[in-house]
């Protein structure tokens, strides 16, 4: 299944949806934070917002993938939702770019918080999904 043209099509469709959803969350979180920080003035709006959307998608996607991999019984579901959608919903390259853009020392904290919450979310997803299963 995973090497067939149909398998690649499932990954492509999932990848389309996952990337679009990540972009939507990124734009949405950016707007929400910008609105709540509106009183502070536009000059300081750039920095505190960097990476917030990526953190949200990475943590949510890690939880969902842990759940999926322990629950999904079909290869189709794993390819479409896991390899396609969730893996594209989350991103490592933008995470690194955001950490660099934030700079030191705050960028190191951003990495530490992303790792800690991402691993915890993945472990929780695996634990919930694996409950009552072998």
């Amino acid at each position: 299944m995973e090497r067939t043209p149909y398998g690649f099509l499932l990954v492509a469709l999932g990848g389309f949806l996952g990337a679009v959803a990540r972009h939507a969350v990124d734009v949405g979180v950016g707007r929400a934070l910008a609105a709540s920080a509106a009183g502070a003035g536009p000059a300081v709006l750039g920095d505190p917002l960097t990476g917030a959307g990526t953190l949200v998608t990475n943590v949510a996607g890690s939880f969902a993938l842990g759940l999926l991999l322990t629950r999904a019984s079909s290869d189709r579901l794993r390819l479409f939702v896991g390899t396609g959608a969730l893996s594209s919903f989350t991103t490592y390259s933008t995470f690194v770019a955001d950490a660099v853009a934030i700079g030191t020392p705050a960028g190191a904290w951003y990495v530490a918080v992303s790792y800690a919450t991402g691993f915890a979310a993945a472990a929780l997803g695996l634990a919930i999904g694996g409950r009552d299963r072998r």
Partner: peptide
């Protein structure tokens, strides 16, 4: 930038598979 950066590079790399793989 949207096509290559946000779309391609963002989706080519993955945090969720990394996080689940590390926990496992």
């Amino acid at each position: 930038a949207l096509l290559l950066g946000v779309g391609f590079c963002g989706a080519f790399t993955t945090f969720s598979s990394f996080a689940v793989g590390t926990v496992r």
